[in-house]
Structures are given as structure tokens and as C-alpha cells.
Amino acid sequence: MDLNWKSAIDSIPILNKAAVLTLELTAVAVAIGVVIGLLMALARLSKSKVVRAAAIGYIDFFRGTPLLVQIFLVYFLAPKIFHWDTLPNNYQYFAGVLAMGLNSGAYIAEIFRAGIQSIDRGQSEAARSLGMAHSQSMRYVILPQAFKRVIPPLGNEFIALLKDSSLLSIIAIQELFYSGKIIVGRTFQPIPMYITVALYYLVMTQLISQWVSYMERRLGKNDIR
């Protein structure tokens, strides 16, 4: 089969747009994931059995089922829950980002929990003996230190989610992979296109991991005396 690289090169403007969309979707999903993850991590460490059970149930469900299935579930389930008969415009973006956010929330919960538990017990004991309430010691003493420690795994989660965003093609979100697929529908040149798409992902993941290690170094500075 002749490889027609021109078809891929001509498509760069379309792919650029799709790459930006991919980044945006991932960033919003991670933002949702961080909020859910923090709440779930705290719930997971709660004294109340019910709260703990709810958090564990959430985490187990979203880590224990495939993201692809979750995307379909959210996509077809949300209209029923919200009683929509005709779906709002661009509904698939809402469903796609929500599914990714819910999924990453479960992983990020475990990242935060590990971060919180990695802080020496003496820290919270010291805070409590200074008269801080449990919530205060969490907020002013534990979480700021924990957050620094979870930067690398959070970066990994961002990268994993960026790659997984290609699954959103299944509900016709024109992110990077689906864009490539649509172009192949016109050019019938899959090999140059998917190599190009792979390079796009590679560049994006590399940039993110550079950024994460920069953040790690910057936040780690005041640890060095």
C-alpha cells in the first residue's frame, strides 16, 4: 500500500484543533476529578462507617469497571436521571467529561488518601496539641504537605487520562483520535494518519510530564535546607 504522507500533513490544522480539544477535555475532567478525589479521600478516612462505605463503594465501582463502559453508562443514563427528553446541544461533551471526571475522581481519591496517610502522625498530633480542631489540622497542616507529595502521581493520572480521552471517540466527540478516524474516512490512508496522531499524543504527554517535574522541583524547594 502506498503511503500518502501528504494526506496527514494537510490535516495538521484539523489535528491541532482536535489536540487542543483533547487537552481541554482532559483538564476539565482532572479538575472535576481533583474535587471528587479530595472529598472521597476525606470520606474514606472518615470516622463514620456509612460515609466510609459510600466512599469505598464509589472508588471500587469506578476503579473496578472499564472507563469505556462508564462513558456509555453516563451517556445513556444521564438523560434518564435528568429527565431530558430532547438532549441539549453538545450533550456528548458534558457526558464525556463527566464520565472521565467521575473515573479519575476514584483514582485521585486513592492518590490523596495515600498522600494524607504518608504524613507523619506526629504532625497531626502536634497540630491537635496546639488546640487545632481535626478539620483545622487537616486544612492547615496535613493537606498542604500531602498535596506536595501527590504532585507526581497526579501528573501520572493526568497523562493516563489524556491518553484515555481517545475513548471518547465512541460517543462521537471529535477529539484527536476520532478526528484522525474521520480524516481516514476521506483519504483512506490510515497508517500515516495514526502515526501522526500517536506523535501528537506523545508530544502532549511529554510536555505534561516536563511540567509536572518542574512543579515538583518548585514545590520541593523549601524542603531543602
Partner: peptide, 11 residues
């Protein structure tokens, strides 16, 4: 048992 209750609750 806590874990099981959690998953059951969610489902």
C-alpha cells in the same frame, strides 16, 4: 463488609 455495603449502596 464495609466495602461490600459500599458497592451495594452505590448500585
Amino acid at each position: 463488609s464495609v466495602r461490600f455495603t459500599g458497592v451495594a449502596l452505590l448500585l
